[in-house]
Design a protein around this nucleic acid. Structure first.
Length: 248
DNA sequence: AACGCTCGCAACCGCACTTTA
DNA sequence: GTAAAGTGCGGTTGCGAGCGT
């Protein structure tokens, strides 16, 4: 059984989008939405484009909340950390960067970050990044963790962010993280040990039904799990809260 | 000024997965 | 249960801008 093409390539326009096409697509989606069907959208909007092309144009370029260029050091750190952990799952990595698309992250990685890290590893980077902590298991693949005032960078978190998935020592750590829809201001006090449970509940409620479930696939040390509820020990909630803070 | 090279980015391709009939 | 349709995603390509010679 062959796969039917999504559109007739002979009758659709290809190549760069014109300002008029952008305007038409933008106006249509802002007025009527996508209707849950990209294939029929170009016809309804009066565009001679493939539905996939429209979807790509909207998601990667026309969406109102898109940011282009100007990646920050913090974003570099998130990209490097997640890439090291899960590989080239760009859409997943992009979902942790406000206003970034998978295509943007992918391009940024392929054109800049990869080379930057290569030079850094070879010691040829003229401006080597200062890492937040270098005590992780992969000190040869260093990246900076952003400073989080009043909230320490725990060595175990660094290990979680930097260790290969094969280094599991406990049961699978499956957790849900929120992907903030807007820039969120987090204060360290909101994540104090006294309201960890509340913060965790909040996190869970924020993502319920949103589909932003995250399975990191790495193990969670049993001794840390045992410390849950036991004073100052770092438990899963702590990591969830910290990482939630970290990515916002 | 002209040419060639490099780099960054937008867009396309094709496969895998999910949903629908 | 199965095939077709629709969607999402990672890899790749092509083009234009910038730069050096």
């Amino acid at each position: 059984m062959g796969r039917a093409p999504c559109c007739d390539k002979a009758s659709v326009k290809r190549g760069p989008w014109s300002p008029d096409e952008d305007k038409t697509l933008c106006n249509f989606i802002l007025t009527y939405g996508t209707g849950g069907n990209w294939i029929t959208l170009p016809k309804k909007a009066g565009l001679k484009r493939c539905g996939k092309s429209c979807r790509l144009r909207w998601l990667n370029y026309l969406r109102p909340d898109i940011r282009h260029g100007g990646f920050t050091e913090d974003e570099d750190a998130v990209i490097c950390g997640l890439y090291k952990e899960i590989g080239s799952r760009w859409s997943f990595i992009a979902s942790h960067l406000q206003g970034r698309t998978d295509n943007d992250v992918k391009n940024y990685w392929n054109t800049r970050l990869k080379k930057k890290l290569l030079h850094s590893e070879k010691g040829t980077d003229r401006n080597p990044k200062k890492t937040g902590s270098t005590s992780g298991p992969n000190a040869d693949f260093e990246f900076p963790l952003p400073a989080c005032p009043g909230f320490p960078v725990h060595d175990n978190l660094l290990a979680l962010l930097t260790s290969p998935a094969g280094n599991n020592t406990g049961e699978s750590f499956v957790q849900e993280f929120p992907v903030p829809s807007t820039n969120t201001t987090c204060s360290s006090s909101s994540y104090s040990s006294s309201n960890t449970t509340n913060a965790s509940s909040s996190v869970s409620s924020m993502v319920e039904g949103s589909g932003n479930q995250l399975d990191y696939g790495f193990g969670f040390p049993e001794d840390e799990a045992a410390a849950a509820g036991g004073g100052g020990g770092w438990n899963q909630d702590n990591y969830v809260n910290y990482f939630s803070y970290y990515i916002c």
